[in-house]
Simulated assay, not measured.
Amino acid sequence: MKVWFITGASKGLGLALAKQLLSQGYKVAATSRRLSDLQKALGEQSDSFLPLEADIKHEAQAEAAIARTVEHFGKLDVIVNNAGYGLVGGLEELTDAEARENFNVNVFGSLNVIRKALPYLRAQRSGYIFNISSIGGLSGEFPGFGVYCATKFAVNGLTEALAAEVKEFGIRVTVVEPGYFRTNFPESDSVRLPATEIAEYKAVRDVQRLHTDSINGNQPNDPDKAAVALIQVAEGAEAPLHLVLGGDAYKMAIEKLQSLEQNFRQWESVSASTAY
């Protein structure tokens, strides 16, 4: 059976995926910043499960986790860069440190894992990399989510380049863009707020309250079904470059495409006016 390596697997989509894989007989290495969280959620180390404490912001820890996985299971087949967190705050409100930390986890953490996994995947001329982004990586028109969306736009961009770079090695790559799934994402341990809020930003506060008070617990999508979908895609003959998950995300993605087309066509004459 294939060996899956999942970051941020102690909760949310990562946890749902790990449980689904183990129930189907796959071998799973899973990371979290706290080993006890993984053991509580998924159990102790076994022939099929390897819990790993790692902060993927640190390249050495990402490297050690990948190496330990290969040592334990003898190979590595599927990487799921799932670790990340939300950040809600106006661009003026968020400090440099708050914004950079979101990039450190959501973008550079995934890059650390990718860099350390690729030597193994290249050597075996096979493998699959899933980078978990968000519908916010396609559409950024959400007040208060500017930095978070920027991290996910970055994940989308690097995934497109990665897919082109590693195709010749037989490695497949997909960026996953979920909508709202019924996980703990809107809760305090998965979404951070600015240390200092500016009262004038009413639109930002409205969106913030919408997520914490109304959306949380009422998300339309099932994380267990998302896990099934990812396994199905990984086992399929074709690999989508973009995988939108959830009817809500699909609707937003189509609306974004239509908006872009309308925008481009409206300003086509100005766009073409720069030619010699």
Rank of each mutant, 00 (worst) to 15 (best):
K202P: 00
R192Y: 10
Q208F: 08
Y180M: 07
P178L: 08
S190H: 03
E187Q: 14
T212E: 15
N221G: 11
N184P: 02
Q208S: 08
K225M: 10
D224M: 05
S214M: 13
P186L: 02
S190E: 03
I231C: 06
A227Y: 00
R182A: 13
R209W: 03
Y180V: 03
R192G: 07
T174G: 04
P223F: 04
E197N: 01
V204P: 04
V176F: 07
E197T: 01
D189S: 12
A229Y: 12
P186W: 02
V173W: 05
P194Y: 08
T183I: 04
E197F: 04
N184I: 00
V207H: 07
T183K: 05
G217T: 04
V176W: 10
Q219W: 03
I231K: 15
T174F: 11
D213I: 00
A199D: 10
A227V: 05
N221D: 12
T212Y: 01
Q219K: 09
V204Q: 02
V176H: 14
A195I: 01
V233L: 14
V207W: 02
D224I: 03
N216M: 05
N218Y: 02
S190G: 15
R205Q: 05
D224Y: 06
R192Q: 10
I231E: 14
T196Q: 08
S188R: 14
S190P: 09
Q208D: 02
V173C: 11
D189H: 13
V191M: 09
T183A: 09
D189Y: 11
Y201V: 01
G217K: 04
R192L: 09
Y201G: 05
Y180N: 12
P223I: 05
I198N: 04
D189I: 09
N221A: 13
D206I: 06
V207T: 11
A226G: 13
Q219S: 10
L210V: 01
Y180C: 08
V233E: 05
G217S: 06
L230K: 15
D206S: 07
E200K: 15
V176M: 01
S214T: 07
N184A: 06
D189Q: 15
T196Y: 01
P223Q: 10
Y180W: 06
F181C: 13
R209H: 06
S190F: 04
V233I: 13
V191F: 02
Q232N: 12
R192T: 13
I231F: 01
D213H: 08
A203C: 00
A195C: 00
A199L: 15
I231S: 08
T196C: 01
D189E: 14
N216K: 09
T183N: 10
E200S: 15
L210A: 09
Y201S: 06
A226C: 10
T174I: 10
V207M: 12
F185K: 04
P178T: 06
Q219C: 07
G179C: 12
V207E: 08
L193Y: 11
Q219I: 02
T174H: 14
Q219E: 05
A226M: 11
R192A: 14
V228P: 00
N216Y: 05
K225R: 15
S190V: 00
P178A: 08
T196F: 00
V207I: 08
V173E: 11
V175F: 11
R205E: 12
L193S: 07
